[in-house]
């Protein structure tokens, strides 16, 4: 995320928190004011009989209302302040865009025309403690001398890892039995859309794959904004 974006996020959260604090303190303040108004609008004639001992006077009530409102308001302010870093920290990864990068997956000569093989590569910006989870994979096929196609290894149904069955020219999912043709079209079972594809290019004799985040399929209630094809 850019510096400006981060500043905007922080100020938006701060603004929201301040508004929330103000709202939560509002009713009690209003109550306090009303109580005071009642006290001042009392008839100016003979003084009301003194309150029986133990019962608070109007002034005391208004003071209590004020202090109640003050306490709630201060609690809200504290909550609002601490919620800025909490919410920002948790939501942050959503707003931080992770630019996709080209990753080499092997020399051109390694791939035979017609073969579909699994290639593994690193995520765009793995953290040092990611270990093996920093890796991603794709099914890469050399369609012709110059053409490659790469498919996501995740089933479009619920994301399980699909297997390539070379002798059957099919991708099969072990979870709910989804099947895809070699061009990624759904062939049988629950998968609703074709396999996601990754971009492939050849640079300096190296085959490179463009990383991409997990392709969330969505569904009828959350239609994907763009087609899966690159």
């Amino acid at each position: 995320m850019t510096g400006r974006g981060r500043k905007a996020l922080v100020s938006a959260i701060a603004l929201f928190a301040a508004a929330a604090a103000w709202f939560s303190s509002l009713p009690s303040w209003a109550r306090g004011r009303r109580a005071r108004a009642d006290a001042s609008s009392a008839p100016a004639g003979p003084l009301p009989p003194p309150a029986s001992p133990g019962l608070p006077s109007a002034e005391e009530i208004s003071r209590r209302h004020f202090l109640t409102g003050l306490s709630i308001g201060l609690g809200a302010v504290g909550t609002a302040i601490v919620s800025v870093p909490i919410v920002g920290f948790i939501v942050g990864p959503l707003l931080r865009s992770q630019p996709d990068v080209w990753r080499p997956v092997g020399p051109l000569g390694q791939f035979k025309v017609g073969d579909t093989v699994k290639v593994t590569f690193q995520d765009p910006s793995p953290l040092p403690w990611a270990g093996v989870t920093a890796d991603s994979a794709a099914w890469l096929r050399r369609v012709s001398e110059s053409e490659f196609r790469a498919f996501s290894i995740h089933c479009t149904h619920l994301g399980c890892p699909i297997r390539w069955l070379a002798s059957a020219h099919l991708f099969m999912c072990p979870c709910h039995g989804g099947v895809f043709y070699e061009d990624g079209r759904p062939a049988a079972g629950p998968p609703p859309v074709p396999l996601a594809e990754l971009m492939v290019r050849v640079r300096d004799g190296q085959v490179e794959v463009r990383t991409r985040g997990v392709a969330i399929t969505g569904g009828v209630l959350n239609p994907p904004p763009e087609k899966n094809a690159p």
């Binding site: 990864p93 992770q98 040092p128 985040g213 969330i216």
Partner: peptide
């Protein structure tokens, strides 16, 4: 990801990013 409107955001929130990772 099947949730309306917020689906993709929730999905990436669960992954804590674009992918499974650190």
């Amino acid at each position: 990801g099947r949730l309306p409107l917020i689906g993709s955001a929730v999905a990436h929130f669960i992954l804590a990013g674009q992918n499974v990772g650190a």
